[in-house]
Amino acid sequence: MEVRTIKVFTTVDNINLHTQVVDMSMTYGQQFGPTYLDGADVTKIKPHNSHEGKTFYVLPNDDTLRVEAFEYYHTTDPSFLGRYMSALNHTKKWKYPQVNGLTSIKWADNNCYLATALLTLQQIELKFNPPALQDAYYRARAGEAANFCALILAYCNKTVGELGDVRETMSYLFQHANLDSCKRVLNVVCKTCGQQQTTLKGVEAVMYMGTLSYEQFKKGVQIPCTCGKQATKYLVQQESPFVMMSAPPAQYELKHGTFTCASEYTGNYQCGHYKHITSKETLYCIDGALLTKSSEYKGPITDVFYKENSYTTTIK
């Protein structure tokens, strides 16, 4: 009895394709271990004539594949690729409408935090270190965002349907971005203890939790000093293409032309909904596939993004 075979390709990165001759009487799992086709788990399936010449994702289970996976995804987590594939199996079914010149995501599976993050990423200057993220990001900007969303979920250790947080998501993504040249110098002034300067680099240099107003941050924000008295913390120097200011959701007025974009969060910790506000020729609110415009805006804002380049204080 002759062994019926077909020729397929296996890959971990969709760049390096490895030619395989597979036995049609055995499952993919018996031949390769966990195997995925377009995100779908085909591990328990036997090869079919229609699979001839198709590319299958496999887990990096030998040295060659491990090197290829690390170079593309910059992670050695053995569960990463499987999590990416199972997320992709959902995100490829989502709709990605162009809204006001940006790629958004039609609401499904509690994905409003991903839509808000995706919209924000198209408006701030950011370059990702893992080629996987950078490639998928370019495709997302062009309207094909399924891979990018699935990668975000995998890097953030999230599953489809789980509630997510924009600030946490951005923080994970910033860790995989090139923020080497970003720098922030802060000064804390206390009447009792004097003053202390701190220099922050990388992710810490672009994120701040405690106030939404970048102007206020430049002037000074009140913080408790270690001595128990009130101290003032203010920005001395900022070198970065953008800054992200966050605070627990509270009524906040966004003035046209003073910011790049913002995240609105309605609801409580267990259950809520994100919308995205962007400042173009007027203010726009993007909620999944829905767009509304207004000249002014007041609502429960939790993150505001500002364009920056270089700032030095005039406070002496």
Rank of each mutant, 00 (worst) to 15 (best):
41 D>R: 06
228 G>L: 02
158 K>P: 01
246 S>H: 06
6 I>Y: 09
153 L>N: 06
194 G>C: 03
180 D>M: 09
148 F>A: 01
109 D>H: 10
14 N>W: 09
306 Y>V: 02
119 L>E: 03
24 M>L: 14
219 K>P: 01
237 Q>R: 12
56 F>H: 05
161 G>M: 02
70 F>L: 15
152 I>P: 05
166 V>C: 01
36 Y>C: 02
50 S>T: 13
166 V>Q: 04
154 A>I: 05
56 F>N: 01
82 G>A: 15
225 C>Y: 01
164 G>M: 02
240 S>N: 01
99 V>T: 08
147 N>Y: 07
167 R>G: 04
44 K>H: 09
249 P>A: 05
88 L>W: 09
174 F>C: 02
249 P>K: 05
115 A>M: 02
183 K>H: 05
54 K>V: 13
268 N>S: 14
48 H>N: 12
76 T>Y: 14
170 M>N: 00
179 L>N: 02
306 Y>M: 00
139 R>N: 12
107 W>H: 03
313 T>Q: 15
151 L>K: 01
168 E>K: 15
16 N>A: 09
290 L>Y: 14
308 E>W: 04
142 A>W: 07
15 I>L: 11
137 Y>C: 06
62 D>E: 10
118 L>C: 04
291 L>K: 06
103 T>E: 06
14 N>V: 02
227 C>L: 01
80 F>M: 02
223 I>N: 03
230 Q>K: 12
4 R>D: 13
293 K>G: 09
254 L>V: 09
170 M>W: 00
142 A>N: 14
310 S>C: 08
36 Y>Q: 07
210 G>A: 00
290 L>N: 15
144 E>A: 09
123 Q>S: 08
264 E>D: 03
236 V>N: 04
39 G>I: 07
255 K>D: 06
94 W>D: 01
312 T>N: 08
218 K>T: 05
10 T>V: 13
202 G>L: 02
49 N>K: 12
2 E>Q: 12
148 F>N: 01
204 E>C: 07
33 G>E: 04
310 S>N: 09
123 Q>N: 10
250 A>I: 07
159 T>G: 09
313 T>L: 15
107 W>M: 06
4 R>Q: 13
265 Y>D: 00
33 G>K: 06
198 T>I: 15
26 M>T: 15
116 T>I: 05
314 T>Q: 15
183 K>F: 11
281 E>A: 06
32 F>R: 09
49 N>F: 10
192 T>I: 11
52 E>G: 10
277 I>K: 02
